[in-house]
């Protein structure tokens, strides 16, 4: 049996979880083992149908109310209980913060190896895996020797809708296990809604990034102005937050926010690997930089060499003239 932790919210299995289910379905096909899932909370008919389309045979569900919104030790116990009942040797999950933590906790309890951020897993008297290192700047091919149980988190990718008519009826199995102090001592005690200030960086359609080349906190005025005209959000590189010019929540990169806009306009940003790890999902990148040899200039779809403080004011002028005309 292959077991896959899935996160379900708003009647939908999360895309991150579906990437793991998809890999689970591939492994099930290769090994002839069946595929089961485990989830916490509720499972709607539509979520079950979605899992069924991947050939999932059963869903182990832990629906005790103490486990929501997030009791990671309790969630890990749900995974372990489902594993004990199903006899699974392989446990998969998505690579969200929550799934990663729960898989890591479960593997620690099971004394099993946990391989994070896998691109692929193949069963071969053990497991051949490819996984991301350095936030995706390096891929590692590795071999995991045959263990009584092995745990993997799967990098999110675009999951193709399963083909054919393999849709199976998913059997719902309620998990029951004791939930005590050990499961609840580090559970989330309160959920706060953020103080809203418009569209978040990660959801923005257009992002304007500023790096060291912006020169000063005041230098961002021109980026803010351009953002106002284009309906964009301003983000920054790590240098900028390190200097205290902008708060960390504006930071794009490996240890900041990952963005996926239609257009990313990177101004005065060199394009260190840690920054690119956060913006490589942008559909188009336009880079403005004084240094034509900066790494970002050879990665961007469009590049302009020059001082952003000379270029952006003129661009703002032209865009304003354009909108005055129409």
């Amino acid at each position: 049996m292959i077991l896959c932790l899935v996160e379900i919210s708003d009647d939908k299995v999360s895309d991150a979880s579906l990437s793991a289910v998809s890999l689970g379905a591939k492994l099930a096909g290769e090994t002839g083992l069946s595929l089961a899932c485990v989830a916490i909370g509720e499972a709607s008919d539509s979520a079950l149908k979605e899992l069924g389309s991947f050939g999932v045979s059963s869903l182990y569900l832990a629906s005790a109310s103490e486990l929501t919104p997030f009791a990671p030790a309790g969630w890990a116990k749900a995974v372990i209980t489902a594993r004990d009942e199903s006899g699974a040797k392989v446990i998969l999950g998505g690579s969200t913060d929550r799934s990663t933590e729960v898989l890591a906790r479960a593997s620690a309890k099971l004394e099993a190896p946990f391989m994070a951020n896998c691109l692929n897993v193949t069963v071969a008297s053990g497991y051949q895996i490819s996984r991301l290192r350095w936030a995706g700047s390096i891929i590692e091919d590795a071999f995991v020797s045959d263990e009584s149980v092995a745990v993997f988190s799967v990098v999110q990718s675009e999951v193709a809708a399963p083909s054919g008519s393999t849709e199976t009826e998913v059997q719902l199995r309620q998990l029951s296990f004791e939930i005590g102090e050990a499961e609840l001592r580090d559970a989330v005690t309160e959920v706060l809604l953020p103080v809203g200030d418009g569209v978040s960086l990660s959801d923005s359609r257009i992002v304007i990034g500023g790096g060291r080349g912006v020169g000063s906190p005041e230098g961002f005025k021109v980026l803010d102005e351009l953002a106002g005209i284009l309906g964009a959000t301003v983000g920054v590189s790590r240098v900028v937050t390190g200097l205290g010019w902008r708060p960390h929540k504006d930071q794009i990169g490996q240890t900041g926010t990952k963005i996926a806009p239609e257009l990313y306009i990177a101004c005065g940003i060199s394009g260190a690997i840690q920054h690119m790890a956060g913006c490589r999902s942008a559909k188009w990148i336009l880079a403005i930089n004084q240094d034509r040899d900066a790494p970002i200039m050879s990665l961007a779809d469009y590049a302009v060499v020059g001082d952003l403080h000379k270029i952006l004011p003129k661009l703002i002028e032209e865009l304003n003239a354009l909108s005055a005309k129409s």
Binding site: Y302, V304, E318
Partner: peptide, 12 residues
């Protein structure tokens, strides 16, 4: 990588 649009304000 793609197109170098130009240099300085002339590229606007």
């Amino acid at each position: 990588g793609g197109v170098l649009l130009g240099e300085g304000p002339d590229a606007v």
